[in-house]
Design a protein around this nucleic acid. Structure first.
Lengths: 357, 357
DNA sequence: CTGAAAGCGCTAACAA
DNA sequence: TTGTTAGCGCTTTCAG
């Protein structure tokens, strides 16, 4: 009889009904053990579990989603942004991701905090905990606050993932990002390959004083370490520009290159190489090599027009899209992610391979 | 009343029932017009269509797939391969794609032909037409035969897509690939950037005489055009190696470099740069620059070990995965692809950005 | 602790 | 040409 049921089922996928029949219980009971909803004797649990893998039963996700007309809401906690900024692309990735999984009934809810204000961050955390989402995906700059938040999420049984950066000692489900140190190394290589510059210029931003952390430090370190190792005698000039003041940017650059006309290698390790586009455009120099990071629209424009030679980046929205996908699979269908830490490939962008990016 | 129904539905997605109610017909009728199954008066068709976009009705794919226990079989027509070859990755992409869309009940069925034998290709075409798949995705090297096949598919109402290459005058639904000419250009750039070589070596394969087409010609042309334009005085030496005879490969290389010790720039525009790895490894030269194409495992190994400096590629399996996804969406849910010709981004691979590819 | 039963939204016979 | 109806496989009350 048992054998007969198994054979009956051979030709197609086993259904919950087959499992129920095989161990002489009802479908409701099987469902309870599948979803660990309790109120089932240990005996039955064992019996059902055995039947499940005897039959190789896999729940039919279509039926499952249809019957439980739940929608899964994921909270996305990222820095506030204005159009054209890095975080806009992450935002976009979450939206695309949700659309791709429309049949899972997924909703994303954004919580945007002010990168310079821990208070605004904490406010977002509270909001999220109150709304009880199915999962949280976040980019966090404030370490202590995030640690606290993570603890509260765990207490509430809400899984969370990191995108773009992470804090290693936390118990996150997933991470998607790129190794910033390595990306810095790659940028330094592209800047100096086949040359042996004696001097290079590293352009940095005057940081808002409110910042508690410098998310850019690891990349810069990767960059500088490479230069030091491969070009030991090379001098790295650092200049600081103010993203909010284009005149200051221009004058700072102008001053610098007036004093150091031999510097032909320029890089910025943050995502805003476009800020110096105006200067570069107005002061052309065909020997100059400029390398930047991240494929913001404005940066791509600088690549296209020839001011920038290389951009090191990854497909930014993909980080978000993958993270959402993997977290959703884990929450909704219990598919454990194959890797916890997922490092994305770094792309090298040049005007010759820019078209279809 | 009409208004009332519309409002009823505001809070959630409209269902087929709402549509039916709104135009006073049954769900069966609505279903018929949605799927163009005919047997409905023109009047009703119009009424239903109007109701559908009044309510913003979108069929629930979960319910739809569940109810019609169809499985959609897609035929994949590609060249036969041995492990490690280019087409193995395409094969892999189709499989991944089908898995990702498991909830659509998708099946892929492979038809592998011999690239040197039009007869074997024709045999596959016949098999496919006989099996009546929901769609066909193919890579075709034989132009006339493919034209004929395409005509028969159209007559049978079976949509088809091209992957990797295409024939422009055919009525395909979709194409995913990369612009071979541009990839050749990019390869030439990477080979010669910041240098101004007087001579370069282009290594080619002795083609099997049975081949009716040289799928590699456009890429080679892109490569050569760039060299001619940017380095007018540069001599391009061509040498032919036999992929089946590693001794011949070694000796050919050896001979060449004995006669031309000053040649430091080496490229292959096909996907088999790994074939010359053995020679390069045995005859190191730290001034040499080698550029190849496509991320076959063996090529990546050459990159990792430093024999090859750059590899120009795209995520090969993605071409297949995307093509399958888009074709399936089009066939199953009637989602018209946003672009008919889809050119993938070309990746530049270097040992520094190889790790997470 | 367990079973029965009423759907979820859609499809596809089958009747009419 | 149209309506009716019995499911698809699963979830979720509600009784017991």
């Amino acid at each position: 009889m048992t054998q007969e049921i198994i054979e009956d089922v051979q030709r197609g996928q086993a259904t919950i009904f087959d499992v129920a029949k095989l161990c002489g219980v009802s479908r409701g009971t099987v469902d309870r053990v599948i979803h660990r909803r309790g109120r089932v004797s240990q005996d039955t649990v064992d019996k059902v579990k055995r039947a499940i893998d005897m039959l190789g039963y896999r729940p039919n996700p279509n039926a499952s989603i249809l019957a439980s007309r739940k929608t899964f809401r994921f909270a996305c906690l990222i820095p506030r942004f204005v159009p054209g900024e890095y975080w806009e692309k992450i935002h976009e990735g979450f939206i695309t991701g949700a659309q791709l999984m429309f049949n899972y009934n997924i909703e994303v809810e954004f919580h945007l905090y002010d990168q310079t204000s821990p208070a605004s961050y904490l406010k977002c955390c509270d909001d999220i905990l109150e709304s009880i989402p199915a999962g949280v995906i976040m980019n966090a700059v404030f370490k202590a606050e995030t640690k606290d938040f993570a603890g509260r999420l765990e207490a509430a049984g809400i899984p969370y993932a990191f995108v773009d950066n992470k804090f290693d000692d936390l118990n996150y489900t997933l991470y998607y990002g790129v190794d910033p140190y390595k990306s810095g190394t790659l940028g330094a290589f592209l800047l100096t390959n086949h040359c042996n510059p004696k001097e290079i210029a590293l352009v940095r931003l005057i940081r808002d004083s409110g910042h508690k952390a410098d998310p850019n430090a690891p990349r810069r370190k990767g960059f500088l370490d490479y230069i030091e190792k491969k070009h030991p005698g090379c001098t790295v000039h650092t200049l600081f520009i103010d993203p909010a003041d284009s005149h200051q940017v221009y004058m700072t650059m102008k001053d610098f290159f007036t004093k150091h006309p031999d510097v032909k290698h320029v890089a910025m390790t943050n995502s805003r190489i476009y800020l110096i586009d105006e200067y570069l455009r107005a002061n052309p120099d065909c020997d100059r090599v400029v390398v930047g990071f991240d494929d913001l629209e404005a940066n791509l424009a600088s690549l296209r027009s020839g001011q920038v030679e290389y951009l090191v980046t990854r497909h930014i929205p993909m980080q978000a899209q993958h993270a959402l996908h993997a977290l959703a699979e884990s929450v909704i269908r219990g598919v454990k992610p194959s890797k916890r830490n997922n490092y994305l490939h770094m792309d090298i962008l040049h005007h010759l391979n820019l078209d279809d990016y």
